[in-house]
Amino acid sequence: MLQLEKIRKTYRMGEVDVPILHGIDLTVLRGDYIAIMGASGSGKSTLMNILGCLEQPSEGRYYFDARDVTTLSDNERTDLRNFQIGFIFQQFNLLPRLTALDNVMLPMVYAGYPRHERLERARQMLADVGLAERMANLPSQLSGGQQQRVAIARALVNQPELLLADEPTGALDSRTGREVMDLITGLHAQGLTIVLVTHDAQVARRTRRIVRIQDGRITADGPPAG
């Protein structure tokens, strides 16, 4: 489903070029469940941003389904994020002034769905993640685990093909973290393609495939040990 060919990313810090990724080749198959692991500064976040079409690689090719993302316009990449990719962040990244329901509806607003359809689907999504009673709450009135579940509902509301999760349990205690991972693993069981970044081995073990990154290169790629 995804194919990265010789992806390089170099940041320019003033006069100096700082290379982050040194030629990444990676293929993600439909239905994959991948954990990207690596020390901070290894380039795993940059890789995630490129996978999520938030950032463009400096060199190389990135195919999403049949399309070469590196040749798409900003609007086309935005639509790709809107329709085909769902994001979950470590800090949840909900809009603080919007209710849980409004947060979940937001991607559909940008997709141009009529209001009644948005309401119906957002309610259904929130019920699916177990927050039927909390729809009118603001993020500040929800616990961390609840906020992350709202974020998951938001990520899935436009029925994406790919779910990207950046340290989804990083800001949660281990119990709620496990619950969130149960939810994500359940989504994989339903057939969703998932890529997550983590440095928690417990989290990584629940995936089907672990990609290790060190200094901008993939050093290992295979099923979790044991």
Binding site: F87, L95, P107, A155
Partner: peptide, 8 residues
């Protein structure tokens, strides 16, 4: 956040 989830 809005840009990430699909705002042009």
């Amino acid at each position: 956040i809005r840009r990430a989830i699909g705002a042009r």
